[in-house]
Write a protein that binds this DNA or RNA. Sequence first.
DNA 1: TTTAGCACTTAGCACAATAGAGTGCTAAGA
DNA 2: TCTTAGCACTCTATTGTGCTAAGTGCTAAA
Lengths: 347, 347
Amino acid sequence: MLTERQMLVLEAIVRVYTEVGQPVGSKSVVDFLPMHVSSATIRNEMVALENKGLIKKTHSSSGRIPSFLGYRYYVDHIVQPGVVPAAELVNIQNSLGVHFQKIDEIFAESTKILSDLTNYTAISLRPETTESRLEGFRLVPLGNHRIMAILVMSSGVVENQTFSIPKSINGSDLEAVTRLLNDQLIGLSLAEISMKLRTSIPVMLVDYMRRPDGILDVFGNILKQAAREQVFVGGKSNILDFATDSNVDELKSLYDLVDTSNNKNIGDLIGIQGKPIQIKIGEELTNQLLDNYSLISASYDVSDHGQGVIALLGPTNMPYSKMIGLLDAFSDELAKKLLDYYQQFDK
Amino acid sequence: MLTERQMLVLEAIVRVYTEVGQPVGSKSVVDFLPMHVSSATIRNEMVALENKGLIKKTHSSSGRIPSFLGYRYYVDHIVQPGVVPAAELVNIQNSLGVHFQKIDEIFAESTKILSDLTNYTAISLRPETTESRLEGFRLVPLGNHRIMAILVMSSGVVENQTFSIPKSINGSDLEAVTRLLNDQLIGLSLAEISMKLRTSIPVMLVDYMRRPDGILDVFGNILKQAAREQVFVGGKSNILDFATDSNVDELKSLYDLVDTSNNKNIGDLIGIQGKPIQIKIGEELTNQLLDNYSLISASYDVSDHGQGVIALLGPTNMPYSKMIGLLDAFSDELAKKLLDYYQQFDK
DNA sequence: TTTAGCACTTAGCACAATAGAGTGCTAAGA
DNA sequence: TCTTAGCACTCTATTGTGCTAAGTGCTAAA
């Protein structure tokens, strides 16, 4: 258990360290504290905090920096969400206020706004997609033996892919296949569809086409794509700013990590969201590369369309208070915007 | 005009520098040359080359490195395309030999193969798209007042976008609009379509929908997207390996430059292709950031589907001979593959 | 024209010296 | 018992110094 003063000292160390980026000495803490005590007193308190494992030195005569446990204690017991300046809030509202044609654009743009606002990397997860179900399926002939397959999900997601069929299948066959797939698959979740595609569907298709593999591949591809496109990342290159040493290989690995174009699933970092605001620090991110990073994630509900998550990936020594406040406000605005969007279709 | 021996010395300096990465001294040149002369002789030749501006020193007593002019002279008058090892050729053929559903996949995959092969960044431009014409246009209702617009181009490109219409338009209106747009736009190039969209089309649409802006916006968007998706980049992160100093800001800018997701048009680097193989060195790339990079681009013809370009972006001191040979062979294979692909539909 | 020889230049590295920031401990004061 | 001034001590970071290796330009002889 920490005394009142020890909490103040810990807070001082965390906050000064996030601002200055240098180990914090006893004198700096004195300057930061509301009451007056001597630096010797602070040194004694620091020894106590160090014994509890909350702060550490970088070398025997250096100032202190928060340890992993120290950050943890700070975010669990000390930090208060910062107040978002009115100007910034208006800024967010304006940025989100424009009209979007596709729901994807809302997510893509919101991560971009958030990363520009913070200079960190922003990650957005769509509202609850395990709940999303197939709403419709189309096969559109494009001429020249090519066909576009379109999937419409209840979450508002639309996925599509073009593919070619080796020999001409006539139009009524195509319609029959479309009807068949619609009958069989509508109302099912992605996982259930995946299952049926491997079991009952192939047998049914043989009536209409000699080799149904092609269209099944396409379906499989679209499903994979749908899963990947649940995650949006903005400000990818910002992550490079906080690499410990600017070793090029490390930088490349970091960028790969957040680059959604290469099938990495950065969404896994975020995991299940219990509380509205959740913070993972350094080693909690279970990736060697991210030992010096923290992730603040905020979940939000969009009425009955499920729960989305938006998160910030920044250095462990980021200004938590400010960022928590910002993310909180931002997720509120985003939820409102999404609700608006869905209401276009709901009534 | 250079003497025979001066050309040999210049070649030695370029080639040793590309292998070792260090300024080349007179003794190293002696070791490289086919005949025997003393280092003092080489030093005299080096003074001559330096006076012509083909090589330079990094400091008063250092070895020499090629200057911009020196590279230029080397690639224009000295270098011979390297022979591609049979094993590597087979490797390329195998990698390109698999079946692709979409033409996009061929381009995306080929840049990936090429960048893996070289550890540089590979850039691919689709065959001649100024020649590409609209082949078909579809509007597909997805339910819930949403519509997907699909454009099929003669180049094999398929672009699509979903959008929402504020109030329900009935099915026959939609068909009429589709028919109208097909009548008016098929056979036109992207540029011509762009034009018509701003002039005659809006007037015609008013009969079917009160506010045709929505669909016109969508059309505009798709066209923009089609233009952007002419460029494919593989091995983006490889560009970081050759930054002069690993200053993080510079690295971020480099990433941004090759990241197609942010509307930058790296395709502009390549420009119009006169010769089958074209090499741009350092400052010729007209981008401060790329002063230490060179671009080797190879153009290829796909019968009457126009001319494509595939290029490598690497450090100025890359092994030109080897890379030219490789790129030459690679573009041949790619052209064959594309021809195969188009022939699926042509007959 | 080529070459050996030599004086000269520079980068890069190891090493020492110094200043500055910060700590822990002790002893005295409240 | 808690707080504080004072001081010795530790470590980093910076600056300067000397040395070595690599390479050059020049000269004079072959």
